[in-house]
């Protein structure tokens, strides 16, 4: 099994790693599928195709997709400004971008809710409702996903060779053409990876969303919340069935992310 290495500790490190992930990842996650198999298929189908549950898939997917898209646009813009333009406070702003990774999600949730309710600091100036609507959910998911796109696009922008842009300019392209034809294709794999990471995170996100969502059945109920609701009613079979659906989506996204990262690395190494 092991090849061409004289270093010690193979058995110990791999053994411990396998033991640890078997106990904490493989055994626990396989419970979802073991429990699903032991229930009749018609009962599972009844749970996962219930209109209330289907409405939650649509909401979770729609809001996560919208938030991911907003993050791609502003994430690329922020990465661009941070890499290309010197301005006072650039280092501090750069550090601040990671705030959504450092701030507990529940705190982000209550802070955003307070700002965007009808008489909140921001909400009072808006003619439409944000908190307790799908818009509020999208807002929270945008907050959570922002660093992913910035941090995947930033290193690619830094490693871009400016000679390429100069060549494009000297061949007569204007700045916009250079961006669309030369820079953008280089950024695309990283931007898509960032989108997929933000999307995956947004799909499963719970803490920041529950406060701002309002959690009305059929309207503002996300899928992770439904799992929680079923659990609180001791409907373990129902919770597990919905979790199985979410896990399958998560695995699919993980696969897509791996392909995207392979594509990004191929382009740049």
């Amino acid at each position: 099994m092991k090849r061409n290495s004289v270093l010690p500790g193979f058995g110990l490190s791999l053994g411990f790693t396998m033991f640890y992930i078997s106990l904490l990842v493989i055994l626990p996650l396989s419970m979802i599928f073991i429990n699903s198999v032991s229930v009749e298929w018609s009962k599972i189908w009844g749970t996962i195709s219930d209109p209330r549950v289907v409405a939650s898939y649509k909401l979770s997917f729609g809001a996560a997709f919208l938030a991911g898209s907003i993050n791609v646009i502003f994430g690329v813009l922020i990465a661009w400004v941070l890499v290309r333009y010197p301005f006072p406070g650039r280092r501090i702003i750069d550090g601040l971008v990671d705030l959504p990774f450092a701030l507990p999600t529940a705190i982000a949730g209550i802070a955003l809710t307070t700002l965007y309710t009808e008489n909140g600091w921001v909400g009072q100036f808006l003619s439409f409702k944000v908190a307790f609507t799908p818009l509020g959910i999208t807002l929270a998911l945008t907050f959570i996903g922002l660093p992913f796109v910035v941090r995947t696009v930033q290193p690619v922008l830094q490693s871009l060779e400016k000679e390429m842009e100069e060549a494009s300019a000297s061949l007569g392209a204007n700045r916009l053409q250079t961006f669309i034809r030369v820079i953008f294709p280089e950024l695309l794999p990283a931007a898509l990876t960032g989108f997929a990471l933000a999307f995956a995170r947004a799909l499963g996100e719970y803490g920041s969303v529950v406060f701002i969502a309002g959690n009305m059945p059929m309207k503002t109920e996300i899928t992770p919340l439904l799992i929680m609701t079923k659990l609180e009613q001791y409907d373990y079979a129902g919770a597990t069935a919905i979790a199985a659906v979410m896990l399958i989506f998560s695995f699919t996204i993980l696969l897509i992310i791996n392909i995207l990262q392979w594509w990004t690395n191929r382009k740049f190494i």
Binding site: P28, I32, L203, G204, P224, I227, S250
Partner: peptide, 12 residues
Amino acid sequence: PFAISPVIAGLV
């Protein structure tokens, strides 16, 4: 664990 919902991480 990064790809799964925290709610599922508790559920298991």
